[in-house]
Simulated scan of single mutants.
Amino acid sequence: MKAILIAVTAAVSVTATAAQAADFSAAELCKATISVEMGRKTKSMKMVNVDPPEISYKRPDGDSFKYRCKIEDDRVVWRTFLTDTREWGRWRENYAAGDAMTTYSVDGGILKITNDQANPASFKKSDF
C-alpha cells in the first residue's frame, strides 16, 4: 500500500508542476533562467529555436551568446554554444562539481526562478 501512495504522490507532483508551467513556455523558462544566471534582461533575448528551447542575446560590446535549455520536473538545465569550437558545451547539471541548480515555480501567474548560487527572481508574462 505504501508503494502505491508514493507513486501517486509523485505523479500528482509532476502533473502539478507541468500544469503550473503551462502558464509559461519552455523558451520563457529558459530566458528567465539565463536572466538569473547571466544578469541579462529577458526582453534583450531572442528565441532562436522552440524545441529544444534555444535563446540568444548580444551584449553592448557586440559579443553574442546562445543557450539551450531542458526542463526536468521543476529544474531548468542549460548549456551554451562555444563559438571557438562551434559546439554545444556540457549541460550544467553537475551539482556536486559546483554547477548551480536552478528551479522554477509558478503561482498566481508569477514565475519564480530560484538558483542556489544567485538571488531568486520573479517574472510576469509581460517580462517576455
Rank of each mutant, 00 (worst) to 15 (best):
N49I: 02
I34K: 01
T9E: 03
A27E: 15
K31G: 09
T17C: 10
V14P: 01
S35A: 14
S13W: 07
C30N: 07
K41E: 14
C30W: 00
A26V: 05
T15H: 05
E37C: 01
V8F: 10
M45D: 03
R40C: 00
E37T: 09
V48P: 00
K31P: 03
V36R: 01
C30F: 02
V8K: 09
A10I: 15
A11D: 03
N49K: 15
S35N: 06
E28C: 09
V12W: 02
K43P: 00
K46A: 15
A11K: 03
Q20W: 09
N49D: 13
V50W: 03
V48K: 07
D23K: 09
S13N: 07
K46W: 00
A19F: 14
E37F: 00
T9P: 00
A21N: 13
A7L: 15
A22T: 08
E28L: 07
A32S: 10
R40E: 08
T9W: 02
T17H: 07
A10M: 14
N49G: 08
A26G: 08
V12R: 01
A18W: 03
E28W: 06
A10W: 05
T9D: 05
A26I: 00
A18C: 09
K41T: 10
A11I: 14
T33M: 01
V48Q: 07
A21E: 08
N49M: 12
I6G: 01
S44I: 11
M47I: 15
Q20M: 11
S13T: 11
Q20C: 09
A7K: 13
V14Y: 09
V36H: 02
F24V: 06
M47N: 13
R40A: 05
T42H: 04
S44E: 15
R40T: 06
E28N: 09
N49S: 14
A18Y: 06
T9K: 02
A32Y: 07
V36F: 04
E37Y: 00
S13M: 12
I6E: 12
A27G: 05
A18T: 06
A16T: 11
S13H: 01
A21S: 12
A26N: 15
K46H: 11
L29D: 08
S35R: 08
A21T: 04
C30Y: 01
